[in-house]
Design a binder for these strands. Structure first.
Lengths: 208, 208
DNA sequence: TCGTTGAGGTGACAACGTCATCTGAAAGCC
DNA sequence: GGCTTTCAGATGACGTTGTCACCTCAACGA
C-alpha cells in the first residue's frame, strides 16, 4: 500500500510543516530537531535522513516560503484588473505583510545563506550528499525577483527596471525590518510602514 | 589601590570588549559566555554579575555600537565644510559601512529587543534588577535617530522630515540588509549598494 | 575590629546538535 | 518464494551551551 518512497516523502513533508510551525511560533531558537521530529511522528535523528543539518531544514522552509510569495506576486502580475502601479504597490505590500504576520519566517528569507561560498562543497554535496537543496532557496528567491522585476519594468520601463527594482525591493525590505525591530515607533517618526511603502513607490515613479 | 567598584567596572568593560570581538568574528552563536569570560580573565559565571543573561550582554554591545554611530553622525552634522545633502549621503553610508564591515553587529542593531513588552517586568528590573540597561540600546538608537532627523530636516524641511527621514533610513537599512544576505547580486540587479543609496537620496530630495 | 556586601569561582543540570551504530521492513534479483 | 541489498528510522552517546545554587573571600561601612 504505502511504498517506501511515499512514506519518506510524507515524513519529509511533515518535518517541513512542523519546522515552519515552530518557526512562526518562537523563531529559529524554538525549532528544535527533537520537537520537529516529535511533531512529525518520528524521533530526533530522523531529520538527518532528509536534511544535512538544522540549517538545511530552515533553509528548505525558507525556500518554500519564497515559492509561495513568488506565486502570490505572479498571480498579481497576470491580473488584468490591476494597473501597473497598483501591482507594484501590492507586490511590495506582500513582503510587508509577511514581515508582519510571520516575522521569524521573514527573517529567514533575507538571511545570509552560508554554505554557498565553497564551490568545492557544492560539488561534494552534488555527488554524495543526500541530494536536495543546495541552492533551492536561492532559486525560489530568484523566481520572486523575476516576477517583481517584470512588474517594475511595466512601470519604470525596461531600461532602469533593475536599478529601480532593487531600490524598491530594498526599501520595502528596510521598512519591514524596521517595523519588526520596533525602530519605526509612531511617536518618533509619525508615520507607518504602509505610508512609507506608498511614498516610496510614488517618489520612485515620479522620478523616472 | 584598586577599589571594588574599579575592579568591577574593568571586568564589565573587558566583558563588553570580548563579546564585541567574538560577535564580529563569528556572529551571536560564537559569543559563548565561557569564551567571553575567558577572554575577560574570569570564568563562565562571572558575566551574570554584570548582565542578566547572554541576551542582555549582546544588547549592551549593540547599545555601545549605537552610541558610536550616533557620535559619527553627530560629528557629520556639525561639520561646517559639508553641504546638507552631502551630510545626508554620508550619514546613510555610515550605516552601509557598518553593515559591510561588522555585519553581525549590524544585525544586532536592528534586532527585536524582546524584554520590552512587559511594563511590569521593567518595574521589577528597576527595583531589584542588577541595575543597568533595560532600554539603553533604545536610548542610544534614539540618539542616532535624533541626529539623523536633524540632518534630514536641513534638506527636506522641518515639515516632512520625519516621514522622509524614516523612508531614507529604512531604505538604507534595506540596502544594507540585502547586500549582507546576498540578495543584491550584481548579475541580477546590475547595481551596487552605494549607487542605490545615492539614488535613494536623489529621488527623495527631488520629490520634495 | 567585626559583621556585611558583593564580585567571582565551582559544581551541577537540562537541553541542544550531531554522530555511530543498530534494526527492520521494503525493494530488487534469481 | 527465497535471498540479499538498501535505507528510513530508532537509539545511545558525546561535547557544548545557558543558567542556577552554592561557596569563597577580600573590600567596605560602622
Amino acid at each position: 500500500m504505502v511504498t517506501r518512497a511515499e512514506s519518506a516523502a510524507a515524513t519529509r513533508r511533515a518535518l517541513l510543516d512542523a519546522a515552519a510551525e515552530l518557526l512562526d511560533l518562537g523563531g529559529p531558537e524554538a525549532v528544535t530537531l527533537r520537537e520537529v521530529g516529535a511533531r512529525a511522528g518520528v524521533t530526533r535523528g530522523a531529520p538527518y535522513r532528509h536534511f544535512a543539518d538544522k540549517d538545511s531544514l530552515l533553509t528548505a522552509v525558507a525556500a518554500e516560503r519564497w515559492e509561495q510569495i513568488a506565486g502570490q506576486v505572479h498571480a498579481l502580475r497576470i491580473d488584468p484588473a490591476l494597473s501597473a502601479s497598483k501591482k507594484l504597490r501590492r507586490a511590495l505590500h506582500t513582503l510587508i505583510d509577511v514581515g508582519r504576520d510571520q516575522p521569524h519566517a521573514y527573517q529567514m528569507l533575507f538571511r545570509w545563506n552560508g554554505k554557498r561560498a565553497g564551490q568545492l562543497e557544492r560539488l561534494h554535496r552534488q555527488l554524495c550528499g543526500p541530494e536536495g537543496d543546495p541552492e533551492a532557496a536561492d532559486r525560489a528567491a530568484g523566481r520572486f525577483q523575476d516576477e517583481f522585476l517584470a512588474i517594475v519594468a511595466a512601470v519604470a520601463g525596461e531600461r532602469n527596471a533593475q536599478h529601480y527594482g532593487a531600490l524598491l525591493l530594498a526599501g520595502a525590505h528596510g521598512v519591514a525590518g524596521m517595523e519588526h525591530s520596533g525602530h519605526l515607533g509612531a511617536d518618533k517618526w509619525r508615520t507607518t510602514a504602509d505610508e512609507l511603502v506608498d511614498t516610496l513607490v510614488r517618489v520612485v515613479v515620479t522620478a523616472q
